[in-house]
Amino acid sequence: MTAALVVGLLVAGGVYLVLQPGLIRVTLGFVLIGHALNSLLVAAGGMGFRAVSFIGTSHPDDAADPLPQAFALTAIVITFGVTVYLFGLARAGADDAPDEESES
């Protein structure tokens, strides 16, 4: 239930920001959507299993699913890469400079 709320809140905020004018807000929205999807990946492993999946640290029966975590880990870093690229685009002049009225 809480995992669903986390995903829902992040998606709502992300979608709102992505639909606004100006590339900076769009980038912020994109980051939120990235968070949402990473949380979704983790939730897909099952939120009932929450012990860390280090061998020898916790009982194997409680350990969280490591596979979605590995997916999410690389996804976080890729999101970072895309975020930086979007910031780069904003920096290169695609953002709303005051004298330039973008269509909406």
Binding site: M1, A3, A4, L5, V7, G8, L9, V11, A12, G13, V15, Y16, L19, A36, L40, A43, A44, G45, G46, M47, G48, F49, S53, I55, P60, A63, D65, P66, L67
Partner: peptide, 30 residues
């Protein structure tokens, strides 16, 4: 639009994610 999207996303997550035992792949890896 955002609230609608968030609602759909939350509902989908609630209904479809994590409603099974841990996956066979996870058990193998662990």
């Amino acid at each position: 639009i955002a609230v609608a999207a968030g609602t759909v996303a939350a509902a989908a997550t609630f209904l479809l994610a994590g409603r099974r035992d841990r996956s066979a792949a996870a058990d193998y890896l662990i």
